[in-house]
Amino acid sequence: MRWVVIVAVVALGVGVPGPAFAWAERAREACRITDPAVTEASGLAALPGGGYLVENDSNPEPRKTRLFYLGADCRVTRSVGYPTTARDPEDLAVDAKGTVWIADIGDNSPLTGGSGKRRDTIALWTLAPGAKSMKIHRLRYPDGTPRDAEALLIDGQGRPVIVTKDPSGEVFRLETPLPTDNVEGAPLTRIGRFEATHSGTSNPFGFLGGSFVTGAAVSPDGTRAVVRTYADAYEFDVPDGDVAKAITTGKPRVTPLPDEPQGEAIAYTPDGKDFLTVSDQAGPVSILRYPVERPAPSPSPSPTPTEAAKQADRGAGPGEPGPGRQGKVALLTGAFVVVAVGLVAAAARRARRR
């Protein structure tokens, strides 16, 4: 009887959904950045025609904190400096119009390894196609409390969305027109929180590394968005362009990004199929490419009762598909469960008669 019970439990467990983890193939190196000018790359984007964009994190020498254009081989082809000092650039994005956005939103506290300096405003820098210099746009959090953040997304309406670095990062969006060269920061609106699960993916920062938000990106067609931690990438469907809603209320697919030295950047490939990442480190560093598995398109709607009856009457003839593989598995599993439960009940009755 003990074996029958075990079989029944296993059978009943078949089909119980587990975590939505998309275990990608092992990452491969897209190219390796060796130019010493590119240090502590904390933001990354792929260019449609090939090549990449990266931006430096804060640098003791302000002139070395720049936006770098890289070829497909990761060699620097040109760079653009900031008109004034950038305090702590942490992410970048390229919108549907080709404008480059740099998120000068870092504010490292002692908790996240910084000096504890706090800033009243944060900034976004934009570089429009063909422009020779960047423009600055200052923002502030609605309650006036400084926060450390490293993730920027641009939604379907061209609105910037910022996710703070702290565990269960807060999600903010700019609802008003984007100001330019302003002194006082335009207020952001709090939308909700992004919730990271503690997946257990190996990373240099252990338990907390799976919670800290370090980067984000939107797919080239705008239908998906990804938020990353030091350990994993969380991808959401964005059916209506509302990125903030998707990452605060949607169900993600999780792709592990194991053992990246200090993974703080993520981007989509130009075709939107794979993820690209890079670590915020000094010295030569690789851009990694992760092939990502995604669910197949949803099946066609179930037939109406009348249509189902007609199909049952005529059967599945030549050219008419019978039950699919998943349907057959489900039928076999159901039959197995029924038989197993019947055997359990019969064994119980025999035990009572004894």
Results as ranks from 00 to 15, higher is better:
Pro220Met: 12
Asp35Pro: 02
Asp237Phe: 01
Ser302Ala: 15
Ile6Cys: 14
Asp313Gly: 01
Ala282Val: 15
Asp104His: 02
Ala196Ile: 05
Ala217Glu: 03
Arg228Asn: 06
Gly185Glu: 05
Thr197Tyr: 02
Pro299Gly: 13
Thr34Asn: 04
Arg147Gly: 00
Pro146Trp: 09
Gly116Lys: 14
Gly263Phe: 01
Phe194Trp: 07
Ala8Phe: 09
Leu127Ile: 00
Pro252His: 09
Pro220Gln: 08
Asp35Ile: 05
Pro256Asn: 07
Phe194Arg: 01
Glu61Trp: 10
Asn203Arg: 04
Leu70Gln: 06
Gly49Lys: 13
Gly334Ile: 10
Gly210Ile: 04
Asp274Met: 02
Gly43Ile: 09
Gly114Ser: 09
Ala46Gly: 00
His198Tyr: 05
Gly106Ala: 01
Ala348Trp: 11
Ala20Met: 09
Ala312Leu: 13
Val339Gly: 09
Asp242Trp: 13
Gly209Ala: 07
Lys97Gln: 15
Ser42Pro: 08
Gly241Met: 03
Leu124Met: 12
Ile6Pro: 08
Tyr52Cys: 05
Arg253Thr: 09
Ala131Ile: 07
Gly156Glu: 11
Thr84Cys: 02
Lys165Gly: 03
Thr180Arg: 14
Thr77Tyr: 08
Ala86Trp: 01
Leu152Ala: 04
Gly327Cys: 12
Val243Pro: 01
Ala45Asn: 02
Val278Ser: 04
Glu195Trp: 07
Val171Asn: 00
Val254Gly: 06
Phe207Gln: 14
Val329Cys: 01
Leu92Met: 15
Gly342Glu: 12
Thr229Arg: 04
Leu53Asn: 05
Gly206Val: 13
Ala186Tyr: 04
Gly158Ile: 02
Pro239Arg: 10
Arg87Ile: 15
Ser219Trp: 01
Asp88Phe: 12
Val339Lys: 05
Lys165Met: 10
Val338Gly: 08
Val292Pro: 03
Gly50Pro: 00
Leu332Phe: 13
Pro261Ala: 14
Thr145Cys: 05
Gly200Tyr: 04
Pro160Asn: 11
Pro303Ile: 15
Pro142Asn: 13
Ala347Cys: 06
Val94Pro: 01
Thr269Lys: 05
Pro261Thr: 13
Gly215Thr: 07
Thr201Lys: 03
Ile247Val: 09
Glu29Ile: 15
Trp101Cys: 06
Val14Leu: 10
Ala330Gln: 10
Arg352Lys: 15
Leu12Lys: 04
Arg66Leu: 07
Trp125Glu: 00
Glu170Tyr: 03
Arg228Glu: 09
